[in-house]
C-alpha cells in the first residue's frame, strides 16, 4: 500500500483516541480461556521441525484421545492417525517450541491445536494403510523438502521407516493427482490388534504381495478423511461420523483433563522410549 499523504495520516489519528476497539487479538474465542486443562510435569515439544519428523508426545496423546473417544461407538476404531500439521507452533501472536511445564490453559492448548474437525472413522485395507503411512513420511530426509504437515502421529499401531528407501512420488497426470511411484520406506506395521489377534506385525513384502486381507478401521479427522494433505487414498472413502458428534480438539482436552493432574502431581506427557510408535532409520 502506498503511503498515505499527511492529510490522511492525520485522519488516522482517531485510532489513538481509543474510540476504536477490537476483540482480544492473541487468543482463540473460547469460553473461559484461563481454564486449566492439565498440569505438565515437563515441557512438551510442539516445534514443527520436531512434530513433523518424529513421534511426538502431544501427537501420541491426540491419537490416544481419538481411540478413547470412539471406544463405545458402533464401530470402534482399530487405530488412530493424525497429521502433524494439526499441531501449530505458530500461534496467533506467539511462536512456541514447547508447551511450558506447569499449568496448561485452554487458551494455550487452543492456540497450539487451533483446528477442531469432526472425528470420523474410515475403513482401509492393509495396503491402503501402508500407502497412508508412506505419504506421511514422503518428505522426510529429502533434499530441498521441508518437513510436511502430513507426517502421521499414530495410536494403536507402530511403524518402522527406512528413509534410505525410495519415497512415494505424486504427480498430476491428465489433470489428476496420481501416485507415480510407490513408496518403500515403511518397512513394517505392528497393529495392537488385528482381526482379534494382538500385536500383529505386517511387513512391507507381505503388504505388497497382497498376502494380508481384511479391513482396518482408522479414526482420524474429517479433514484427512476427505483427502486433505493429499492423502489420495482417502479421497472418496466413506466417513462414518460419531453419534453424538465429536471433535478433535474437544476429545483431546477431555482426555488431558481426565488425567486428573494437579499442580502437585502433574502429568508426564512424553514419548515412551521403550515402546516407540515410530521407528526411524537413516532419516538423519
Amino acid at each position: 500500500m502506498r503511503r498515505a499523504p499527511a492529510l490522511l495520516a492525520i485522519a488516522l489519528a482517531p485510532t489513538a483516541l481509543s474510540c476504536i476497539q477490537f476483540n482480544a487479538d492473541c487468543s482463540q474465542p473460547v469460553a473461559d480461556p484461563s481454564y486449566t486443562v492439565t498440569y505438565l510435569a515437563s515441557p512438551v515439544p510442539v516445534d514443527h521441525t520436531v512434530v513433523r519428523t518424529q513421534e511426538s508426545a502431544l501427537g501420541d496423546r491426540m491419537t490416544d484421545a481419538f481411540l478413547k473417544a470412539l471406544q463405545d461407538s458402533g464401530s470402534p476404531p482399530d487405530v488412530a492417525v493424525d497429521n502433524a500439521g494439526d499441531i501449530r507452533d505458530l500461534g496467533l501472536c506467539v511462536t512456541r517450541t514447547e508447551l511450558a511445564k506447569g499449568p496448561l490453559t485452554r487458551a494455550v492448548l487452543k492456540d497450539v491445536i487451533p483446528f477442531s474437525d469432526e472425528l470420523v472413522t474410515v475403513r482401509v485395507t492393509v495396503q491402503e494403510l501402508f500407502h497412508l503411512l508412506e505419504h506421511g513420511v514422503a518428505t522426510l530426509a529429502t533434499p530441498g523438502n521441508h518437513p510436511g504437515g502430513q507426517f502421521l502421529q499414530v495410536s494403536g499401531l507402530s511403524y518402522e521407516v527406512d528413509c534410505s528407501k525410495p519415497a512415494e512420488q505424486l504427480s498430476t497426470v491428465g489433470g489428476n493427482l496420481v501416485r507415480t511411484q510407490d513408496g518403500q520406506r515403511v518397512r513394517s506395521i505392528t497393529l495392537a490388534s488385528f482381526e482379534g489377534e494382538p500385536n500383529v506385525t505386517i511387513t512391507r513384502d507381505e503388504a505388497d504381495s497382497d498376502a494380508v486381507g481384511g479391513d482396518i478401521v482408522v479414526a482420524l479427522s474429517s479433514y484427512l478423511g476427505g483427502g486433505g494433505d493429499k492423502f489420495i487414498d482417502l479421497d472418496g472413502k466413506t466417513m462414518t461420523k460419531a453419534n453424538p458428534e465429536r471433535y478433535t480438539y474437544t476429545v483431546l482436552e477431555a482426555y488431558l483433563h481426565a488425567l486428573h493432574a494437579t499442580a502437585g502431581s502433574p502429568a508426564t506427557l512424553a514419548v515412551d522410549p521403550h515402546h516407540p510408535r515410530i521407528v526411524l532409520k537413516n532419516c538423519g
Binding site: 492529510l7 482463540q28 487452543k110
Partner: peptide, 20 residues
Amino acid sequence: AEFGSERRNDDRTELEATRR
C-alpha cells in the same frame, strides 16, 4: 474526502477467529 477506521474480522466463532 472519506475516512473509515480500521476493520477486522468478527470473532463470533472459532472459525471466524481463525479467518483473520
